[in-house]
Design a protein around this nucleic acid. Sequence first.
DNA 1: GATGAATGAGTGTTCATTCAT
DNA 2: AATGAATGAACACTCATTCAT
Lengths: 212, 212, 212, 212
Amino acid sequence: MPKVTEEHTEARRRQILSAALTCFAREGFHRATMQDIFREAELSPGAVYSYFKGKDELIAAIAAEVVRFALGLFETLSRPGPEGRLHTPGEGFAMLVRAFRDIDLSTWAHRTRLGPQLLAEAQRNPALRGRVREGLGRGVGIFAELARAAQERGELDPQLDPEHVARLMLAGFHGLLIQVSLLGDVVDVDAYVKTVAALLDSRAATRQTTPA
Amino acid sequence: MPKVTEEHTEARRRQILSAALTCFAREGFHRATMQDIFREAELSPGAVYSYFKGKDELIAAIAAEVVRFALGLFETLSRPGPEGRLHTPGEGFAMLVRAFRDIDLSTWAHRTRLGPQLLAEAQRNPALRGRVREGLGRGVGIFAELARAAQERGELDPQLDPEHVARLMLAGFHGLLIQVSLLGDVVDVDAYVKTVAALLDSRAATRQTTPA
Amino acid sequence: MPKVTEEHTEARRRQILSAALTCFAREGFHRATMQDIFREAELSPGAVYSYFKGKDELIAAIAAEVVRFALGLFETLSRPGPEGRLHTPGEGFAMLVRAFRDIDLSTWAHRTRLGPQLLAEAQRNPALRGRVREGLGRGVGIFAELARAAQERGELDPQLDPEHVARLMLAGFHGLLIQVSLLGDVVDVDAYVKTVAALLDSRAATRQTTPA
Amino acid sequence: MPKVTEEHTEARRRQILSAALTCFAREGFHRATMQDIFREAELSPGAVYSYFKGKDELIAAIAAEVVRFALGLFETLSRPGPEGRLHTPGEGFAMLVRAFRDIDLSTWAHRTRLGPQLLAEAQRNPALRGRVREGLGRGVGIFAELARAAQERGELDPQLDPEHVARLMLAGFHGLLIQVSLLGDVVDVDAYVKTVAALLDSRAATRQTTPA
DNA sequence: GATGAATGAGTGTTCATTCAT
DNA sequence: AATGAATGAACACTCATTCAT
């Protein structure tokens, strides 16, 4: 009992989760077997099962981590930037993509594979579904807020529905993951982000000026 | 039951494919068992296996159909509309979503579930991967063309990279499927399409005017 | 009813049996499927099933044919040859091998494969077992008779047990089929026959000469 | 059940192999199901599959054991006996049959059934085929050697082709298995062996006397 | 706490056989 | 008589999970 500290426990959890993530990204949730994970983690079945109740819990834990990451990011996005105003939608979008690309708890390639799988799996797995919906809802809320703020500052066409601008931003992100996971480096992520941001932001500044 | 031909055979194929689609949409490719499909199709294992070589071929056939549909649609999009000019990107996007929503070979709900699954599955399944990549490539090509034409007509900011505008359009579509599959009717598809189209099209008319 | 004559019926039976024999020799009794046979016979399942009750009956019919052939041959062997005396064991052995090799109702290669399979299958299949035992018994009987006659003529060591000489002759035949089926042309059948015959017969030639 | 090793593993392998051998001898390779083997071994499917990759490997392992046994025996036969000379062909034959009859890793009845099946199966199964050919080749080589030595000692008719005498000896063995598997105790194995040995050996003694 | 051999329900698939036409 | 689409029991095999040590 004194032997095993909390740190040890947490380290083991991370070790297992990391192995699982690698396997899931490599093979998909269903094709990856628990044996694969035991091997990747260099741990016995019993060891893994004493930290997680089963495969579903492993998937859920990974999903939870991804969603937690996203929620934290949204939180950041909802706070004014250094210039003292809320980020523009374009800035927000760029920050989302970049933050997601720069985490180090696994490679960008792994994450682009995992994202679409998680999204697809969430359709059927109630535990995932709740979490993912929460993340989605929060994302739409934040981005809609940015859009509304931009409209108020006269930087975005006031006729556009902020909620649906927000949905497009999320879609733009999810769709990017899909394209990268299937096409790899053919997709120039930076150029994509720049184009999307330009489309979202340049927008109404123009508008505003125009009519007058 | 001898001397049955062509129509009968084709009808059976459709019956099986339709049952498979229902099961895959309901349970996911991996969780759906062949038994589920036999039951849904009200056919015996042997009957199904005499039309398709196995589960993989069933998945491949469904993917092929989806991709074929998309390619046909892209073909339509690449031809000038009634006004004698190419469709604007916004029109193109709206046509894509609406066409996909209005096919009747199964419900919209089924298709929104199937899409993300197909995209996720394509990561690991080489047969799917090739097809999906082809569809993706063609889609980017067509939408980029529309974007370029719009730029030439002075309707889209010439600074935007047409390829990445096209990628965003595809992403906007895939992301929509994801959101609808997870959130259901919470998503107002028509409003979404209108917003995206407005964002894509209104654009440069304004721009044009601005500099002055 | 008038349409289909008995000849027609018999021709169909032979057509089916011949196809089955080809398939069984090519794939083995268990691996060969009824579908293979339908294809080989260019006949529908129903057609085949109206002539034979099932796969087992097909196997039984082929076995029956082989055994009938062997029994006919043994009958011939049991009758005195042109010189007015019974054949020597060596002559008998040579006649057995040559007769079996020269039937034309299928190739020698087919028959060398079928033989060992039939013998193995007879262990478990009661219908075959009875027939094969009958053939075996008759073979031992005939060859033992030849051996006894040779002993009486002073051409074979009288100390040898005729029954077991007969068993060796049959074994020499079955073992030849095995070797040919596994080694193909590596086995020089004629040289083998000559050697076996010499071993069985020469014996007494010596003997003959001796007394003098 | 952790920390089990070597002996345990080897014991399990033998337990499974033994169960498989029993089932194969009882039902034949194809009719025996894996379920039969699980039941006979009193083990679960997973347990069996963790020791052997599949049914084919089980068959291959059994074949390997039989061939290994035969090769070891041939090795023994190729060495001079107590009298300082090579065994006569008749002695060699008797040793082969007796050694095969006296192993205790399963009953003689089982082995007489397995032999012909293995020989038949080897026709189609390339893995078996290679092994069996090797055993056959070695057997012919050894027996031919014994025959040649006997010829040199003046104990065997020098006109006989040693290779084909050897083939007859192998055939005499395989054919014995066939007869015993089909006829059971009707066959007096000892008398058979004595007769065959006498035929092979007594031979030239006679010869010797003749010329004079 | 950790091990890993063992479990067994469940999977995708095959194929001898039937029977409406 | 002949067809061939359809059946469904049976098969080989997988893999998430357990538990004696």
